[in-house]
Design a protein around this nucleic acid. Structure first.
Length: 183
DNA sequence: CCCATGATGCCCT
DNA sequence: GGGCATCATGGGT
């Protein structure tokens, strides 16, 4: 498992360092696993694309304010879920969206998008706010090292409404990886 | 290739 | 009531 300190680094760093880590969901006795290949950082207070922008705290965004290393999961477009890793402490409501994984175990369908990977890993509201260091969902370092030169970055997807934050290069992905949502 | 649209439910002002 | 951190599909160029 990743130590708690890992999630207390600057959120951009966490987003980069999560590339190559393994996400595992235990479901009906099976291990559903994949390597994280694409992420996006969301920087609460100053980031107009983030649900916690300006410190907004509602029933939905509560988990955003948990200590780093917990999940933040929400429903989008009435039919998909998005899975985030909370970073920092309650004074720094930030998170990393997991946008794509490369399947390693017991996954049959594509996971090259935030909605699709949640569908495949059976990630939904009941897992919201859980720590990510124990079943039923956890992230671990399995010894894959991604070279700095193999990490690409660019603007985030689907946040054109976010004014100046629209152009911030907070999306990270592994270069030439076939399982990212887009290059 | 690009752009437009519908599905569908909840959140938030 | 408007809009959304998405996806699949269908049509035009």
């Amino acid at each position: 498992m990743l130590p708690n300190d890992f999630y207390m680094q600057p959120t951009k760093t966490v987003a980069e360092q999560l590339l190559g880590k393994q996400l595992t969901r235990i479901w009906r006795g099976k291990k559903l696993s994949g390597i994280i290949v694409e992420t996006e950082a969301y920087l609460g207070l100053k980031d107009k694309a983030a649900h916690a922008y300006g410190g907004r705290k509602t029933e939905r965004t509560k988990a955003f304010y948990l200590p780093g290393g917990h999940s933040y999961i929400y429903l989008i477009y009435g039919m998909y879920h998005c899975f985030n890793v909370v970073c920092g402490d309650e004074t720094r409501p930030e998170a990393v969206l997991i946008r794509a994984i490369q399947p390693t175990m017991d996954i049959e369908n594509p996971t090259n998008g935030p909605g699709k990977l949640c569908r495949e890993l059976k990630i939904a509201k009941p897992l919201n706010g859980l720590p990510l260091n124990a079943p039923p969902i956890f992230i671990e370092d399995i010894g894959i090292n991604i070279h700095k030169c193999d990490i690409k970055r660019g603007p985030r997807i689907g946040i054109d409404y976010a004014q100046e934050a629209r152009d911030w290069a907070l999306r990270f992905w592994i270069r030439n990886n076939a399982f990212v949502s887009r290059n």
